[in-house]
Amino acid sequence: MSTQTDVRLQLPSNPLFLSGAREMVYQFASRSGFSDEACGQLALAVDEALCNVMRHGYGKAPDRPIWISLAFVGGVATPETQHQNPTEALRIVIEDEARQVEPSTIKSRDLDEIRPGGLGVHIITEVMDEVRWEKRPNSDVGMRLTMVKKRTPAAAAS
């Protein structure tokens, strides 16, 4: 798989920067050939991931660093495309310096229970094709979230 990091951005853990981050992701995805709907979903997933870091990772401290990396990658094989041209995808990596938690404890809640909050992880896993939380390697602080959305025919701009 060929990989090239195209954008890496650092922003503070202040919710006022969410709209700018969404706009950047939307524009990057649009230029990578994703449909309007898919661009919106990618921006939403990043928003939810950043909110989780701001609220749970940094406990609402507004001045801690968060890094977003965006890369358009080629050659992601899927069962549907393995005998054709490999599917291309957008890979988004979000990293922080918050306290580390066991990735297995990050999970969606039961949606049958109607209550405020706890929807972010569900939304991220619902709109992205691959989602992986891990502790940042070679560090005793910080988490890394890697999200991939494939540019399948359904997610591509017509």
Binding site: R22, C51, I114, P116, L119
Partner: peptide
């Protein structure tokens, strides 16, 4: 034009 889960949570809270 846009709402995230914090907006949803606010509306769920108000509905309840």
């Amino acid at each position: 034009p846009y709402m995230d889960s914090s907006g949803l949570a606010t509306l769920v809270e108000a509905m309840q």
